[in-house]
Amino acid sequence: METLGIYVPRLVTKRQGFTPGHRACSGCGEALAVKLVMKALGRNVIVVMSTGCMEVISTQLPYTAWEVPWIHTLFENSAIVASGIEAGMKALNRKGTPLPKAKVVAIGGDGATFDIGLGAISGAFERGHDFLYVCLDNEAYMNTGIQRSSATPFGASTTTQPAGKVSMGQSTWKKNMPAIAIAHDIPYVATACPSYPFDLMNKVKKAAEIEGPTYVHILSVCPTGWRIPTDMTIRLGRLAVETGVFPLYEVENGKYTLNYDPPRLRPVEDYLKPQGRFRHLTPKMVKKIQQRVSVEYASLKEKAASG
């Protein structure tokens, strides 16, 4: 992975589509992700956003944090609203009302993506609309108060599946959303994390340039919901990647590339331990998680090796 940190001021535009002054919590990994996504996309975009933290913190009437055309309608329908925009622009352009070129980008949280909006996303991928879907995955319904979603990892304590005397928190494994996207045979699927900003921006740029449906899945650390100090956001994102819990990879027309493959993965305990949502985990459960992560990482490496 490139280490371009010292060149940041020269390499990254100062123009922001998503401007400061919004109401996100301090240390919000999601707001950081959106900022980077928008820097990568530039101005020729139309953003469709699902109901969620990012919508609520950025568009309280009569204010807006958006300097690009932006629309929010409901929770579960961003992929299809994006489909409608894409179809509308195509029709208008074809029929003599020329519109400026714009990439349609739908953005939703893990609840909007993994759960309530999955049908609409599947439909839009299957129909082949030219749009980018960005999932901001902070692993629970954070906007409503840390309720579990199907993106919540095994063992995490949430307000609707809390750890207790007879409960260990989330009892199911995180749904593999990128695999679902890949199963639609769309041209580009990638995972990213704002702790690796250049990797994230490159993937978003690449996804936006490809014609057809593309999917970028961004792990967005949530200090509030993960119960970590607000200055730990970047470090937690790195630990998620370095432990293999959230590998950075991309799949172009079915070909897997592992973008960051450390010589030796750190133990998952390094990632789990700083987080309040995992503090009840027993060594046995940590071991179970380690086994699962090792198996999944090995399987991903195999896919990347076979091209």
Binding site: I46, T73, I80, V81, G84, I85, A87, G88, A91, A120
Partner: peptide
């Protein structure tokens, strides 16, 4: 008829597709 037909996967999406198309100024 020169129009785009979005064959959606539910009525919720049928109306949501109309929202998007109408929001860019298409007759929907």
């Amino acid at each position: 008829l020169d129009a785009n037909y979005i064959p959606v996967e539910s009525e919720h999406s049928a109306m949501s597709g109309c929202l998007g198309a109408s929001a860019v100024g298409a007759r929907t």
